[in-house]
Amino acid sequence: MSIRHGLLALLEGGPRYGSRLRTEFEARTCGTWPLNIGQVYTTLGRLERDGMVAQDGEDEGGRALYTLTRAGREELRAWFGRPVERASPPRDELAIKLALAVTAPGVDVREVVETQRRHASQALHEHVRQRAQALADSPGHPDELARLLVLEQLICHAEAEIRWLDHCEARVLRLTVTERAEE
Score class of each variant (00 low, 15 high):
R86F: 12
A132V: 01
E169S: 13
R118I: 05
T103P: 04
P139T: 07
P89L: 06
V102G: 08
A136R: 15
T176L: 12
H157R: 15
L100Y: 10
V128E: 13
L94T: 08
S138E: 08
A134L: 02
Q122A: 14
E85Y: 15
L94C: 06
V150N: 03
D108I: 02
V113L: 11
L145E: 10
A101S: 14
A120H: 09
A136D: 13
T115F: 10
R174C: 12
W164D: 02
V84F: 05
T178P: 04
D92V: 06
L98K: 04
H127M: 01
R117H: 05
L154M: 14
H119N: 11
A132G: 09
H125D: 14
E144N: 15
R180V: 07
P142A: 04
P90F: 05
H141P: 01
A181P: 01
A87G: 08
A101I: 00
V112F: 01
V112W: 01
E93S: 07
K97P: 00
L175V: 03
S121V: 01
E114P: 11
R117Y: 00
E126W: 04
R180P: 03
E159L: 09
S138D: 10
A123V: 06
V112H: 01
P139N: 05
T176P: 03
H157W: 07
S88V: 12
E126M: 07
E144K: 08
A104Y: 02
I162V: 12
V172F: 11
A146V: 00
T176V: 11
H127E: 02
Q130D: 11
L149Y: 09
E179Q: 14
H125S: 12
V102F: 08
R174T: 10
E144S: 15
R131W: 03
V128C: 05
R131L: 15
L98H: 03
W164L: 01
A160R: 15
Q153V: 08
L165F: 06
Q153P: 00
V113C: 11
I96M: 08
